[in-house]
Design a protein around this nucleic acid. Sequence first.
DNA 1: GTCTATAATACGATAGAC
DNA 2: GTCTATCGTATTATAGAC
Lengths: 202, 202
Amino acid sequence: MGEGIAARAGTPGEAAEGARQRILEAARQLFTQHGYFNTSIQDIRCASGLSIGSIYHHFSGKEEIARELFYETLAFVQSDIRAVYDGYATARDRCYHVVRRLFETTEAAPEVMEYVLYFKHREVLPREKPICSSQPFELIKGIIAEGMAAGEIRPMDEVLATAALLGMPVRLVQLRLEGALHQPLTESLSDTWECVWRSIAV
Amino acid sequence: MGEGIAARAGTPGEAAEGARQRILEAARQLFTQHGYFNTSIQDIRCASGLSIGSIYHHFSGKEEIARELFYETLAFVQSDIRAVYDGYATARDRCYHVVRRLFETTEAAPEVMEYVLYFKHREVLPREKPICSSQPFELIKGIIAEGMAAGEIRPMDEVLATAALLGMPVRLVQLRLEGALHQPLTESLSDTWECVWRSIAV
DNA sequence: GTCTATAATACGATAGAC
DNA sequence: GTCTATCGTATTATAGAC
């Protein structure tokens, strides 16, 4: 987008958007590193390079920053899964690439995955729906259901199948983020996929 | 554990232990229900029926209460797994009963499982080792390793196999605790076990 | 829009009587 | 061992100049 008008800091337009993003970026990093409750507005101020007043100009408070990050991250995950759904036709391909993207995202943008997995939404944002009943997971359930209808996946409870598909990969992502796995997840992809697909395939 | 001497409240001996336990019980419930950082010492005071001073007499502070609960819970889980290890001989039986106990404990003592799964140890007790590298998980890895040596479990990375064993069941426990599953987990045991064992069996 | 200074409060922890 | 009263501090949020 345009860049001619606002060259100096403090000018309106995308400079303001820049400030917003700087705040969100700093907050995400601090929230995932030290936890939401161990992060003060002062910490966000230091990390973002802005002032308290500026932060309160853009957000109503710490909680709104967390909520904004939550929706941003949810949208990111959702578009990822939708891209897989649209890009492949069989349940097998779709499931495989969901797991693959999960691993790739963990390696490429660990702070995003960290926010998704470790952020205690129930504790910080108790009014939001839990992530497991959100749209991304509904998409996964759809993939599973179509796979059962097509005879690719053994008939069973959809929730069970979803847990079978994501349980092991998510657990590995957690271990990787905790530093318990030294290899990149992508190197374990084929072994992981073997386990996952055995568990739900006909 | 005599009981004759101290009949009135406030008397030393097991009455003091009773106070300790009342504090721990109240804290566990509040921590899992509203989160550690949303629970104040005042809240624990109200729920336990004791006074601030009494709480600080038994514990050095809020963090020590959390640490105490952490070790208590860890010991509980560990003895559970050890009982399974000692009670069965094959990897198949051991793995099955680990999953079974996981489900049974979730139904019988959800507040314990909730504490294990949802308590953000890294955020509250950053100095403790993460639960994944603690003794209970070492026990599981042992079961897996013996199973591979005996030719019951496909040869693969032990960490991967552990994730394959626990990933799906743990995910289902989470869903159950969040209220997303209305059936008791024990009713899904056989289907879950089918998925799990397919994923790691030879 | 951004800044500094400050108000208001909630919290963890302590002191000291009983 | 238990209690009440209180201290010191950290934190959120606001007020008002620029």
